[in-house]
Write a protein that binds this DNA or RNA. Structure first.
Lengths: 150, 150
DNA sequence: ATATTTGCAAAATATTTGCAAGACA
DNA sequence: TGTCTTGCAAATATTTTGCAAATAT
């Protein structure tokens, strides 16, 4: 059927932008997102991009973040100093994120919202349409570092 | 012991500010928080206060929101148009919030984060220190209104 | 060829802060 | 009385937007 193998879901590493055009700037931004590894603010992403590809504007980064979010490749995972934190969102099935408050590393976690919670909401007269779950903590390395500091 | 009955936890309706001073402005703000009933932004709260008590500055409202949040009487429940949404937080035990996206009504829900999720985080090397859970949906009235619109 | 994306700079907002004056305890 | 709170206005900061030029497909 298709000559090229365009994945329908679970975008591969090269495609964080869904169906939008892949410009040089966006390529650089996608690269920076991966190099950051964990959670980041728009400004941090801009700084990371600028380190290797100078001349990319802040607005472009903000627009890229919006595009990647719309494509489901990025998810907001809290905020720091008034700026929204984003993180790469593993494609595939429904999940949430656990963010290390020390280094920003993010891992996916299963969704804890189960039928019993939904039905208790239902009995309160509510129909749940969306939910937001994020955990915060320390990764092994940051926990060890914190313990050492005592 | 105590001549006055200062509850240690689960602040009563008159005390949204914890131990801070109860000024006229703060009394008016607390009143407005209750009159709003559901989720609100700082600006909406300021407008509500101003309707009955003119002359209260925006900064005072922001500071009051911070004070009430610190006292545990208010919790952030998402954002709208770039502004943080807050809601009255029922005192007492640990819980989360379900917000009607139609009218802003908020109800408390039990916490779905259970031991199995925490131990799966643990096995990934993470120690969970905090979490954030919010559900969004429609209350009975707003759901009926939406159905009617078809 | 053409619709999308970029970069710049300016705009729109949300929230915070300094400080003198006023209010609570 | 002494400290906390207020109000105003200015400062900060984040994110958005208009528009002409550049670019991807």
């Amino acid at each position: 059927m298709s000559e090229h193998h365009h994945p329908v879901s679970a975008p591969c590493a090269g495609d964080l932008f869904g169906g939008s055009r892949l410009s040089a700037a966006r390529r650089a931004i996608a690269e920076a997102v991966r190099s950051l590894g964990g959670a980041f603010t728009a400004e941090e992403l801009h700084a990371a991009v600028s380190a290797t590809h100078a001349g990319i504007g802040v607005a472009t980064v903000y627009r890229a973040v919006a595009a990647m979010s719309a494509a489901g490749a990025l998810a907001p995972v809290g905020s720091r100093d008034g700026s929204t934190l984003y993180a790469l969102c593993a494609g595939g099935d429904h999940h949430h994120h656990l963010v290390c408050t020390g280094c920003g590393t993010v891992v996916g976690i299963e969704c804890p919202v189960d039928g019993s919670l939904l039905s208790s909401a239902k009995s309160a007269g509510y129909t749940v349409t969306a939910h937001e779950v994020t955990l915060y903590g320390l990764c092994a390395a940051c926990a060890a570092c914190a313990a050492e500091r005592d």
